[in-house]
């Protein structure tokens, strides 16, 4: 046990504790008790221990399956201890750990591609969806086409996009973008269609022009669906990105996982997978946070933390 092994563990654990503490503080604020007693309440609640139990059971099963249980399929896999040691090792046996530069290069490549695709999909998909919901005529043109193209799996686009686009990089981004784009567009469309007709009628009879209806009714009214769509789109972007990287890339977490498989570096596969899990969770959290900031009214409507006044 040297410092280089313990320190990152400590950092990860304190990060988890920090998130936990902030959440407890918020909860304590709304239920009007001190943070300390809120933490006590949470730690003694059944729910908290069920969450912990879920993790312990899963990792425990993994460990048992690899080392003790007579499942041949699992014996080829690395155990959780092996993965953690490799992941936190200064001198990793298979070449990838938190102390190697390559690890971050892979993460950066993947994050960069996912972000670019996601932003492109949002910039193009949201207006496209709004337009589809806004104009009956445009809807008639585009909806059948979108519904035809959408079910084509991202991997089926890989050969065409490599043929059409200059180089592998744009091809991978294009494939990723495509999936995220359809999710965003359709959710935005659904958002516009879900707006109560009474809201349009009220705006019309108060003398609003089309432009004002777009800005004051259509966009805010569809925002809840748009943000649900963005979260799904982010998830979709990650999984098609990894698929794309496995087939046609030189860097990235998908490439790392695939390379780990072909070069028999099994712990690296798991490191790549777990890293994807963390990043995916983080990116969803960012979108949720932005959405909450933009939709204060929604929080009140859902009744979560708002206060209703009675006469």
């Amino acid at each position: 046990m040297n410092i280089y092994f313990v320190l990152p563990l400590f950092v990860i654990l304190s990060f988890i504790f920090f998130i936990f503490y902030r959440q407890q503080k918020r909860l304590a604020h709304y239920s009007g008790i001190s943070t300390l007693s809120q933490i006590k309440k949470t730690l003694t609640s059944q729910r908290f221990w069920l969450v912990i139990l879920g993790f312990v059971l899963t990792i425990g099963f993994w460990y048992a399956a690899v080392y003790w249980l007579p499942f041949d399929a699992f014996h080829r896999l690395p155990g959780p201890d092996e993965v953690v040691i490799e992941w936190l090792s200064r001198d990793p046996y298979y070449g990838i750990s938190i102390y190697t530069k390559e690890y971050y290069v892979h993460i950066l490549y993947s994050t960069y591609r996912a972000t670019v695709s996601f932003l492109l999909a949002t910039i193009l998909g949201v207006p496209f969806g709004l337009l589809m919901g806004w104009s009956r005529r445009f809807y008639e043109y585009s909806f059948p086409l979108v519904e035809m193209i959408r079910p084509i799996p991202p991997l089926a686009w890989v050969p065409l996009s490599i043929l059409m686009l200059p180089g592998v990089e744009p091809a991978v981004i294009f494939v990723t973008f495509l999936v995220a784009f359809f999710v965003t567009t359709l959710n935005t469309l659904l958002g516009v269609q879900s707006i109560d007709q009474a809201y349009f009628r009220a705006a019309l009879c108060l003398g609003a022009s089309s432009k004002e209806i777009l800005y004051d009714v259509v966009i805010p009214g569809s925002l809840p669906y748009i943000f649900t769509g963005l979260q799904i789109s982010m998830g979709a972007a990650w999984f098609s990105l990894v698929a794309g990287e496995m087939i046609a890339a030189q860097y990235g977490l998908g490439y790392l996982i695939w390379q780990g498989y072909s070069l028999v570096k099994y712990p690296t596969i798991i490191i790549g997978m777990v890293t994807l899990g963390f990043i995916g969770y983080g990116s969803s959290a960012v979108i949720r946070y932005v959405g909450k900031r933009l939709m204060a009214w929604r929080e009140q409507e859902l009744g979560g933390l708002g206060v209703t006044y009675e006469e």
């Binding site: 809201y199 009220a202 705006a203 003398g207």
Partner: peptide, 27 residues
């Protein structure tokens, strides 16, 4: 001629004030 409906049609994304000033400001 303004109509007040059976069901409330206040825009839920605007505060009461923003709802009320909508008419005169958009016109």
């Amino acid at each position: 001629r303004l109509m007040v409906f059976q069901e409330t049609a206040l825009w839920p994304w605007m505060t009461v004030m923003e709802n009320v000033i909508f008419g005169p400001t958009v016109r």
